[in-house]
Design a protein around this nucleic acid. Structure first.
Lengths: 354, 354
DNA sequence: GGCGGGGGTCGAATCGATTCGAGGACACGG
DNA sequence: CCGTGTCCTCGAATCGATTCGACCCCCGCC
C-alpha cells in the first residue's frame, strides 16, 4: 500500500479530514479526546505527519531559501568566509523551519547559464552570497519569477536588498596603520574583479573594468588613506595559493623597488602572501609587512597573528537570515552595512630602513 | 494582482488548462500554433512557467535531496573532504534537476534532537555524509517518513545504502610503508570516535567504544599491518589545530620514548601534526615521519608533500549521486566501496637511528 | 421551559498543476 | 457520400493538505 494520507487517518479515527488536520496543526479548537484519537490512528497507520507538498501548495510557501553560491561549490566552500556566512544564516533561519537549498553559480564564464534550479525550484526567497552585477542573469531570472532576493556584498540595485560591511573604511584603516609604520611602497592583492578571473598585475584599464563591487570598494580604501598602490595584483579567487603566487610576482624584484607592505583583500590571500614571502627568503614583518581582511583564525600561521580587518561574518549571515524572515513576513527590511574593526597582529611592523 | 496561474494563461490564450499545460511540459501532442499562442499569452502575463509546488504535489516528487551534514555547517565545511564530496554529489544530480537541501546535524551531544527539517521538509531522498550509527535518531526519523537514505562512510545497516572507501586497506598500506622504512614506534591520530568528541589519548576501554565506523576501520588498518600503535590520540574533529594539539601531546617526551612515525586519519590532522612537530623543534621526516589520509592539496605545507592515502572524494560524491538517482528511478542500487591509493610524499622517511 | 452562546466538528472550496480518457474536426480512401 | 483513422483539444479527476463558514449540541441563565 502506498503511504497513508490524512484522509486515511481521519477515516480510521472516525473523524472528518478537517478535524484530523486540526489535530496536527493545532490551528483551531479541538477536544483533547478527539485529538488523541487522531494521533492514535496515525500511529497505527504509520502516518508520520502531513505531507509537506500538500501543505506547501495550500500555503503557497515552500519554506525554502535558495542560496546561490557564486561558484562551483568546491571553490566557494574553500573560502571560510562563505562558509561562516552560510552558517550564520542557517542558524538564524532554522528555528523558523526554513531550509537552505544550495544553488551553484555559473561554472563557466563563457557559458553563464543559470542553474536550472533558479528557473524552476520551489523557493520563497533567494540569497546570493557573492557578486551580483547589474545584468546578472540569475537576478533577472529571480525577478521574472517574482522571488525576492537578498544580495551580500554586491551592487545596490533597485528592489533588491543588499547586506554588506564597511569594507572600504576597514581597508582605509589598515592602510593608515601601515603608513604610520613608515611604509611608502604599498602593493595590494585583490579579490577577483569579475567572472573572468585572472592572476596578474592589473593595469589602469583593467582596474577600470572591475565588475564585482567588493574588490572595487576594498581597492578604494587604499586611496581613501592617501595611498597609491605600487602594484595591484588581481587573483582568480580568495585562496592561499593565489596569495602565494601574488607574493612571488610582487616581491621578486630588488629591495629598492620592492613594496615594503602588502595589503591583501582577504586573510586567505594574505596568508598565502606570507608563505610566498618566506619562500623568497623574506622575513615577515621585518622585510615586508602583510595585512589581510576578514579576521579568520588561520591555524597554519601560528604562532603568527595576521594583521587584519575583522568583519562580523556570522553576524552578517544572521542579518541576512533576519532579512529573509522579514521578507517572508511581508516586511520591507532595509539594506545593512555592518562595521569592521582593525586587528593589529604580528605580520605588520616598521618599514625597513632603506 | 497576484501571480498569474496556468489557468490565467490558458484563458487568455483561449485554450483549456490542460492544453496550456501541454504547451509547457511538452508531454503530449500539441499543434505548434497552439503552443505558440500559449507561450505568447504567458509572456504577456509575465507568467514564468508552472508553479513548482503544484507540479510537485501532483507528481509526488519534490526534486530535493536532503543532505545531512553531521555537524554544524561551520565545522562540517571546514573539512575539505565533506565539501568535495558535496561538490561531486551536486555535479552529478544537478543535470537531473535535483537540488540539495542542507540539513545541519545535531549541534549538541547532550541534546541529540534532529533538525526540524528532517521531520517535515519535502525531500525525495536523504544523504548522510558523516556518521550514522545504528540508533541514529536521524535515520529513524527518515525511516518513519519512508524517505530512502544513503549513508557515506557509516555502518552497514539494513535497508540503508552505504557508500564508502577501502580505508582500512589504505591505512594498512601506509603503515606497511612506514614499517619498511624501519619505524617501530608508531602512534596514530584518529578522527572522532563519536558525538562525544574528545581531544586526548584514548585507552583500551575508550577504543572499545568507538561509535563512528570510519575511525574504527582506519584504526584497524594499523593492526592489519601488524602494528600495535604506541598511542592512539583521539581528536574532536578533522581540523589542523587538533592535529597540532595531538603532536604536542605525542611528541613532547624524550627521544627514546617518542614515536618515530605518526599515522593520522586525515590530511588535515596530519598537516597539524607536521606543524606541531616543527613547533617542538623536530624535523619532518628526519626526526618524525607523518602520514595522512585523503589526498588533499594543502597549500600551506608547500613545498612539502604529505605522504597520504589518496581517496577519490569527488568520485565518491558522484557515486552517491548516481545511487540517489537510481533510488528515485525505483532501482535498487548496491553498496559501494571505492579503492584508495598510497601516495608517498616528503613527510615520511627512514626511521631515525637510535 | 425557552433562548442565547460557545466549543467542537464537519463539508466543501481551494491551492496549481498533471494526466487520462473522451470526443471533435478533418482528411483520405473506398 | 460515408466510414475510418489521425491529430489535437478539452473536461474532469487527482495529488494532500488547509481553512472558512455552517451547523449541531449542550450548557447555563432567565
Amino acid at each position: 500500500m502506498s503511504r497513508p494520507t490524512l484522509a486515511d487517518v481521519a477515516s480510521r479515527a472516525g473523524v472528518s479530514v478537517s478535524t484530523a488536520s486540526l489535530a496536527f496543526s493545532g490551528a483551531g479548537p479541538i477536544a483533547d479526546s478527539t485529538k488523541q484519537r487522531v494521533l492514535d490512528a496515525a500511529a497505527e497507520l504509520d502516518y508520520s505527519g502531513p505531507n509537506p507538498l500538500g501543505r506547501q501548495l495550500r500555503s503557497g510557501r515552500s519554506g525554502i531559501v535558495g542560496v546561490v553560491v557564486g561558484d562551483a561549490l568546491k571553490r566557494a566552500f574553500r573560502d571560510p568566509v562563505s562558509v561562516q556566512l552560510l552558517d550564520g544564516l542557517v542558524d538564524t533561519i532554522a528555528p523558523a523551519g526554513l531550509g537552505v537549498l544550495l544553488i551553484p553559480g555559473p561554472t563557466d564564464v563563457n557559458e553563464p547559464a543559470v542553474d536550472p534550479l533558479i528557473e524552476s525550484a520551489a523557493m520563497d526567497v533567494a540569497v546570493m552570497i557573492w557578486g551580483g552585477t547589474t545584468e546578472d542573469p540569475t537576478l533577472q531570472a529571480l525577478r521574472r519569477r517574482g522571488i525576492p532576493a537578498v544580495v551580500v556584498e554586491g551592487h545596490e540595485l533597485d528592489g533588491i536588498l543588499t547586506i554588506g560591511i564597511d569594507d572600504r573604511h576597514g581597508v582605509a584603516e589598515v592602510t593608515r596603520h601601515l603608513v604610520e609604520l613608515g611604509h611608502r611602497r604599498i602593493a595590494t592583492v585583490t579579490l577577483p574583479f569579475g567572472p573572468d578571473r585572472r592572476s596578474a598585475v592589473a593595469d589602469a584599464g583593467r582596474i577600470g573594468q572591475i565588475q564585482w563591487k567588493i574588490a572595487e570598494r576594498r581597492l578604494a580604501g587604499l586611496t581613501d588613506a592617501g595611498v597609491q598602490p605600487t602594484a595591484v595584483f588581481e587573483t582568480p579567487a580568495s585562496l592561499v595559493e593565489h596569495g602565494t603566487a601574488a607574493a612571488h610576482a610582487l616581491l621578486s624584484g630588488p629591495p629598492e623597488n620592492r613594496p615594503t607592505a602588502i595589503v591583501a583583500q582577504s586573510d586567505l590571500l594574505a596568508s598565502g602572501v606570507v608563505i610566498g614571502a618566506r619562500e623568497l627568503g623574506l622575513r615577515v614583518p621585518e622585510d615586508v609587512s602583510v595585512a589581510g581582511f576578514d579576521g579568520l583564525d588561520l591555524p597554519w600561521l601560528t604562532p603568527d597573528v595576521l594583521t587584519t580587518v575583522v568583519q562580523p561574518i556570522a553576524e552578517k549571515g544572521a542579518v541576512v537570515g533576519r532579512a529573509v524572515q522579514q521578507l517572508l513576513a511581508g516586511g520591507q527590511p532595509e539594506d545593512a552595512v555592518l562595521p569592521v574593526a582593525l586587528r593589529v597582529g604580528t605580520t605588520t611592523g616598521l618599514a625597513p630602513i632603506p
